[in-house]
Amino acid sequence: MGVLPVRTIGIWMLAVPLAILAIGLAFKGMAAANPSFFFTWPYFIEVLIAGLLQGVMYSLVALGFVLIFKASGIFNFAQGSMVLFAALTIVGFIEMGTHWTIAFFITAGIMVLLAISVERIVLRPLVNQPHIILFMATIGIFFFLDGFAQTIWGSDVKVLDIGIPKTPITVMENANPSDPNDPWQYGILINQYDLIAAAIGAVLVTVLAIFFQYTRTGRALRAVADDHQAALSVGIPLKTIWAIVWSVAGIVALVAGIVWGGKAGVQFSLALIALKALPVLILGGFTSIPGAIVGGLIIGAGEQLAEVFLGPLFGGAIQDWFAYMLALFVLLFRPQGLFGERIIERV
């Protein structure tokens, strides 16, 4: 066990910069061949970083899916509406005049309550039914939450501001260029909001990964994911586990809702970012937390780079479909995703 992760990490640390360099060189070559393309290294890196940060935010949404999929084998269609519901709720409390930290804890409590009622009302009667039935039940939850949230809090576009600065910062600036055409003279612009959002995401993921890997409850969660019956037989209470998983997914949805809502405003379309999480999941694997992260990063970066540097070739608007094309390729060659648990089949 010990050697393998070290080797894997080594390979990745070598392969990723090389891949980025190769993509950069390819774009540079294209720009050299065709003057209608624009390429400089700082610009490339700027786009890349913006994409990666965007990717972390995709990962945040994807994470909620992975949690529930791991523990119950259900693709939770309602994750997107949970994000919306959480965001609307916290905005609602903030508008009432509560400080955002207090609103956060109240909303987290509501998400836990929601998780417990989902388990009681929807999942418990459906124990041992085929996965497709549970999946359809989550579609029901999606519509319910979607309508319920907007009935309570209204359907206007709302502003969610928890005080994260939105001004961009400049790094690696070469203020006194000796050469007036030095590409580094303006440095690299990084959106501060995205940077902080990414940091929040990173902390959340680390905590979850440790929880899953090393705690008793985490182990029980993974056991339930593998085999409901066997988990029952060793005395793991499915009800408790499911309530925990849905609660955690609810809190992840809350964090995703805050981050996305703060960026794009809280409104109905927030529920649809779930669609962006789909290619992330396919790429990273439905059962892997690191997969959700790396998948998100690849999708985010790939999308931005393709839009900016390949866009002119196709007349723009690549961003909307690039991720799905990528997912399609992964499905063709590696259906379990980059990090998904290998489908173990022994005869």
């Binding site: 993974r222 056991a223 994911a225 085999d227 019956q229």
Partner: peptide, 29 residues
């Protein structure tokens, strides 16, 4: 009272040791 089910029903993706540890779930910490 604990049952060992027909067809083994191990947790495939957990290691052997983790499988054993899940058996101690009800014993707490």
């Amino acid at each position: 009272v604990i049952q060992v089910m027909e067809g083994r029903h191990c947790f495939e993706h957990l290691t052997v040791e983790e499988n054993l540890l899940t058996g101690a779930y009800t014993r707490g910490g």
